[in-house]
């Protein structure tokens, strides 16, 4: 019974983070800030949801852990690839930005 309640709470937290991540992708001003929200919040949200499901059904726990780990390993790599590709494509940073040491180095 307790594992049910704990799992449901974990899933609820995860789902809320998934929603916040989506909201972040919608609201942020440029590609890089969208990646910040889209990667961090959705990764933790999915992690929490999947582990919560594993806790509710103990026989699936290890498999859910494998899926969660796979997401934890691959999502940052995908985000890095998108960010790098956008910069190479010449997507501008938002006007709010204060410093760009990557671009400075490129110009020299």
């Amino acid at each position: 019974m307790w594992n049910m309640i704990f799992g449901e709470i974990l899933i609820l937290i995860g789902v809320i983070f998934l929603f916040l991540g989506s909201l972040g992708v919608f609201r942020m001003p440029d590609v890089y800030n969208r990646l910040q929200a889209g990667t961090k919040c959705t990764t933790l949200g999915a992690f929490s949801t999947i582990v919560g499901v594993g806790i509710i059904e103990p026989s699936w726990f290890l498999k859910s852990l494998v899926i969660a780990f796979f997401l934890l390993l691959t999502n940052p790599v995908a985000a890095h690839a998108i960010g790098r590709a956008s910069y190479k494509m010449g997507v501008k940073l938002t006007e709010k930005s204060v410093v760009d040491q990557y671009g400075e180095e490129k110009d020299e």
Partner: peptide, 26 residues
């Protein structure tokens, strides 16, 4: 506005969908 934005949203969508599929199995 740019295609990068679209890819970012697709990336987030796939993560959300993975979580949704696990919820389906529950």
């Amino acid at each position: 506005p740019t295609s990068s934005d679209r890819v970012v949203s697709v990336d987030a969508m796939t993560t959300v969908t993975t979580a949704l599929l696990v919820l389906f199995s529950l």
